Simulated assay, not measured.
Amino acid sequence: MTDPKDAEMSADGQGTKRRRTRNYGDRRTVSLRMDPELHERMMDLCDDLKIPANTYISGLIETDLKKRKK
């Protein structure tokens, strides 16, 4: 975060939270931890497919939710 306008005080007043409205509109951020080997395999696939990892992961979630009709 390089622009101080990208942060604001959290509701509890204990610090700042990110504000990404300028770049990402109403999208939400999710932190995902994965095994380094799995990450490397995923990134290799994304490179082969020429798509960002975020697009790949979002597509997997969307496909699963549609399958489950959620």
Score class of each variant (00 low, 15 high):
residue 10 S to Q: 05
residue 62 E to S: 14
residue 67 K to V: 11
residue 52 P to T: 12
residue 31 S to D: 10
residue 45 L to Y: 02
residue 40 E to M: 12
residue 8 E to H: 00
residue 5 K to P: 15
residue 51 I to C: 13
residue 19 R to F: 01
residue 24 Y to E: 09
residue 25 G to E: 01
residue 22 R to W: 06
residue 7 A to H: 09
residue 35 D to P: 02
residue 19 R to D: 08
residue 38 L to R: 11
residue 67 K to R: 14
residue 63 T to V: 06
residue 48 D to M: 12
residue 16 T to G: 03
residue 60 L to G: 15
residue 1 M to G: 09
residue 37 E to A: 09
residue 69 K to V: 05
residue 3 D to S: 05
residue 30 V to K: 13
residue 68 R to H: 06
residue 59 G to Y: 01
residue 9 M to D: 14
residue 38 L to D: 10
residue 30 V to F: 04
residue 33 R to A: 13
residue 60 L to E: 15
residue 15 G to M: 08
residue 53 A to C: 12
residue 40 E to K: 05
residue 58 S to R: 14
residue 49 L to W: 13
residue 32 L to W: 04
residue 7 A to L: 09
residue 5 K to T: 06
residue 68 R to F: 09
residue 64 D to P: 14
residue 26 D to I: 03
residue 20 R to K: 06
residue 12 D to C: 09
residue 56 Y to G: 12
residue 27 R to K: 10
residue 36 P to C: 10
residue 69 K to C: 00
residue 46 C to E: 12
residue 38 L to G: 09
residue 10 S to W: 03
residue 30 V to W: 10
residue 2 T to D: 11
residue 3 D to W: 07
residue 44 D to C: 10
residue 17 K to S: 02
residue 16 T to C: 10
residue 11 A to M: 01
residue 16 T to F: 00
residue 5 K to Y: 05
residue 57 I to S: 00
residue 70 K to F: 14
residue 1 M to V: 11
residue 63 T to G: 08
residue 19 R to Q: 01
residue 14 Q to A: 09
residue 37 E to G: 07
residue 28 R to L: 03
residue 17 K to G: 03
residue 60 L to H: 11
residue 63 T to A: 08
residue 63 T to P: 09
residue 8 E to W: 04
residue 28 R to D: 00
residue 19 R to I: 03
residue 64 D to Q: 14
residue 14 Q to P: 03
residue 67 K to S: 10
residue 9 M to Q: 15
residue 48 D to Q: 09
residue 24 Y to Q: 01
residue 68 R to S: 13
residue 65 L to D: 07
residue 4 P to D: 04
residue 44 D to Q: 05
residue 53 A to W: 15
residue 26 D to M: 01
residue 50 K to D: 10
residue 46 C to K: 06
residue 56 Y to H: 13
residue 55 T to E: 15
residue 8 E to F: 02
residue 11 A to D: 06
residue 68 R to C: 06
residue 40 E to A: 07
residue 26 D to W: 00
residue 27 R to A: 07
residue 42 M to E: 14
residue 69 K to P: 08
residue 14 Q to Y: 04
residue 29 T to M: 07
residue 56 Y to D: 08
residue 55 T to Y: 08
residue 64 D to Y: 15
residue 5 K to G: 10
residue 19 R to H: 06
residue 12 D to L: 01
residue 22 R to P: 05
residue 54 N to R: 04
residue 50 K to S: 10
residue 43 M to S: 14
residue 45 L to I: 04
residue 34 M to E: 08
residue 42 M to W: 12
residue 45 L to F: 02
residue 14 Q to C: 03
residue 26 D to R: 02
residue 25 G to V: 00
residue 36 P to M: 08
residue 31 S to A: 13
residue 51 I to L: 12
residue 31 S to E: 11
residue 55 T to I: 14
residue 15 G to T: 00
residue 55 T to W: 04
residue 17 K to A: 05
residue 51 I to W: 06
residue 56 Y to C: 11
residue 43 M to C: 11
residue 17 K to N: 01
residue 5 K to W: 02
residue 23 N to S: 05
residue 58 S to H: 15
residue 62 E to G: 12
residue 49 L to N: 14
residue 18 R to H: 04
residue 57 I to L: 02
residue 3 D to R: 06
